[in-house]
Design a protein around this nucleic acid. Structure first.
Lengths: 153, 153
DNA sequence: TTCTTAATGGTAATCATTATCAATAAGGAC
DNA sequence: GTCCTTATTGATAATGATTACCATTAAGAA
């Protein structure tokens, strides 16, 4: 834990930024869940421990962390952005979600279907060449009804 | 054109809905472009011809048309939703985009990479089984820098 | 401990989208 | 064509997420 703390600290300092309490808290919250939290979700959890941290600060830092490539931001169509820590194990920029259009539950399925990765690389190449894009990331989202929402219908 | 008009009319009437002027206009606008227009974009274009059509009506009908499966709604991360006519040629629910994170230009590449479709079906099956989801659609978005944004940097 | 300035937090402002509600107009029946 | 029911509209207000402002606070290097 403290080793990580030190890494974070260095990562911020390298850019002339400071590793502050709110930033530590936000990273803690995102690091401790697999959910896709909204800014307000994060605010509530941080605020629970540190009631002096404001919502504005949470927004500001989420934005910063995204620009630093430490977290990723998604829209699942419910009007608010959702955030996820980019874990070093998985390639940054790769995010695969399964979204229930009824209850809004979100499942990550990043960890399987290797073929998918292979195809993605292939498609990335074709698209890069054909359109002159330098591709930095992608999002794959499947929409549908989860099991319980199918029966409760 | 008039044949299409008749089809739309029937499609609405079947649900007890009316085929009104604003609806016709919105479908015209979306049918006449390959861009991914926002609600306001659409409003401006409709309003140009029919200055009496209000923004609320545009929003309301975009929502209706989406629920009818006639148009699709996307978020590309710029804070506003964008809409696209679901052309019958392509399978509904399949939408593949290439988004420039700098100038926000969006390219559809729906019409090639057949392998992709094949893999998607495979993945859909796996996900359906493994998570009990009934999958209704998906979105694939690649992010990157378009050619001109790479050089202007 | 001191000092510079990045960062904070409360409040107001903005922007997209939605709710409200009286007025309007599709389109089937006649 | 006219009438009538009611889906639809449009203006305005309200909401909800996110951002701008700005005086105050606190990292962290010296």
């Amino acid at each position: 834990m403290s080793g990580n703390e030190h890494n974070w600290h260095r990562r911020f300092r390298n850019r002339g930024l400071r590793f502050t309490e709110p930033r530590r808290m936000i990273l803690d919250v995102l690091g401790g869940t697999k959910e896709h939290l909204s800014a307000e979700d994060i605010y509530v959890r941080v605020h629970r421990e540190h009631p002096n941290v404001g919502l504005t600060t949470v927004y500001r830092n989420l934005d910063l962390l995204e620009r630093m490539g430490i977290i990723a931001k998604f829209q699942f169509g419910d009007g608010r952005s959702r955030f996820e820590l980019v874990r070093s194990a998985q390639k940054p920029g790769h995010h695969h979600h399964l979204v229930c259009t009824s209850c809004k539950k979100i499942i990550d399925y990043d960890d399987f279907v290797e073929e998918e990765i292979e195809l993605l690389n292939k498609v990335e190449n074709v698209l890069s060449n054909r359109h002159g894009f330098r591709i930095t990331g992608h999002v794959i989202q499947f929409y549908g009804l989860c099991k319980s929402c199918q029966t409760n219908k």
